[in-house]
């Protein structure tokens, strides 16, 4: 056992951090700067990070879940408003099905509530697509859905259109605007194991995003506590504020440890165990992230409750990442199920 990042992994983290720090939004008003957002999107497109889970010649992904998680964490920390999670999950589905890379911007469709992928029983998807949502859909023209076929699943794509949902101000959603059509070139039918493995990746990436969001939120609140003065002193000198921030930091550190393991498990463990690792990490990270972001709002006082403060942008992003493939409750149920304990009562 040696869970240190490799020098290459450290270098990847540094290069993502550079892009994020150069082009990511530093203030709420910068979220409305299309020129900055376009530069950021172009930098990420040029980096190849969205293709980390695309297939190399043997069908294996170009990079492991750990590399993908490193990217996700830094993007979360910097509130990056360019797609990564959606395209990465789409690329993973295409890899597992032996399908070529998407030609345009593509994401995935999740069922109502976002806790599971859309599984359509047939092409006439009118009912199953009701309430389905395409995540992280900035610029996406299509989203992938699973279609029950041959004892497993095939991939189908469906056109999507943007909606005016404002849960996450950095990653808009979209809804289906057509009916699903099977992808033309699929080498194989996805098994249940494939879907489990894909879910494990999704859980690992959302955990990594949440860890990044927590890091960013703690830093924002810490900096404010150093600057803001009341009673003639920085509020960060008051023990009540210090303890809030200390607890937030500790929650982030525990989250980091489970999220790292979930990212490693994606490729290193059998699908069922990778899913269990992802579920355990997600339960922990989702619970921690909400509290940490609430702390960031609280430390900012009245300002933290205004639109112009970034604290709520972190909180909103945390809520979205929590919901994708299930939050604390849904994943705690997965953990219990893995231990042979039903959680139905």
């Amino acid at each position: 056992m040696d869970v240190r990042l490799s020098p290459e992994q450290h270098a990847l983290r540094d290069s993502v951090a550079q892009v994020v720090d150069r082009l990511g939004p530093k203030a709420v008003r910068q979220l409305d700067d299309p020129e900055r957002a376009a530069k950021l999107d172009a930098a990420i497109a040029a980096s190849g990070w969205r293709d980390l889970r695309a297939a190399e010649d043997g069908g294996q992904p170009l990079a492991s879940g750990v590399e993908a998680a490193i990217v996700a964490e830094e993007l979360g920390r910097g509130l990056v408003d360019a797609p990564f999670l959606g395209p990465t999950l789409s690329a993973e589905l295409r890899r597992l099905a032996g399908a070529p890379l998407a030609t345009g911007a593509e994401t995935v469709l999740l069922a109502r509530g976002l806790s599971s992928p859309v599984v359509a029983a047939a092409l006439d998807g009118a009912v199953v697509l009701d309430g389905a949502v395409a995540i992280d859909a900035e610029g996406a023209g299509t989203a992938l859905v699973l279609l029950a076929a041959g004892g497993g699943h095939m991939l189908a794509e469906v056109a999507v259109r943007p909606v005016d949902e404002r849960t996450d101000l950095t990653r808009p959603t979209a809804v289906p605007s057509g009916t699903p059509a099977p992808l033309a070139d699929q080498a194989r039918v996805l098994t249940d194991h494939d879907v489990t493995s894909w879910t494990a990746l999704g859980l690992a990436l959302t955990c990594a995003d949440l860890v990044g969001v927590m890091r960013g939120a703690v830093q924002l609140a810490r900096d404010y506590a150093v600057d803001r003065r009341q009673y003639g002193a920085a509020i960060g000198s008051f023990q009540a504020v210090q303890h809030l921030l200390a607890d937030a930091f500790v929650a982030m550190e525990g989250s980091r440890s489970v999220a790292l393991h979930a990212a490693w498990a994606v490729d290193a463990l059998p699908p069922d165990e990778a899913l269990a690792a992802g579920a355990l990490a997600k339960a922990y990270c989702a619970r921690a992230a909400r509290t940490v972001c609430e702390t960031a709002v609280q430390v900012h006082g009245g300002i933290g409750n205004t639109w112009e403060c970034l604290a709520h942008v972190f909180l909103r992003r945390a809520l979205m990442s929590s919901d994708v493939l299930g939050g604390a409750g849904a994943n705690l149920a997965r953990v219990l199920d893995h231990h042979g304990i039903g959680s139905s009562r």
Binding site: M1, V3, R256, L260, A283, V335
Partner: peptide, 18 residues
């Protein structure tokens, strides 16, 4: 409560690995 105890104990194992 049991579920959270499972999660917490495993978190600590992984944290110690780190």
């Amino acid at each position: 409560d049991l579920g959270w105890a499972i999660v917490e104990a495993e978190m600590l194992r992984l944290h110690v690995c780190r």
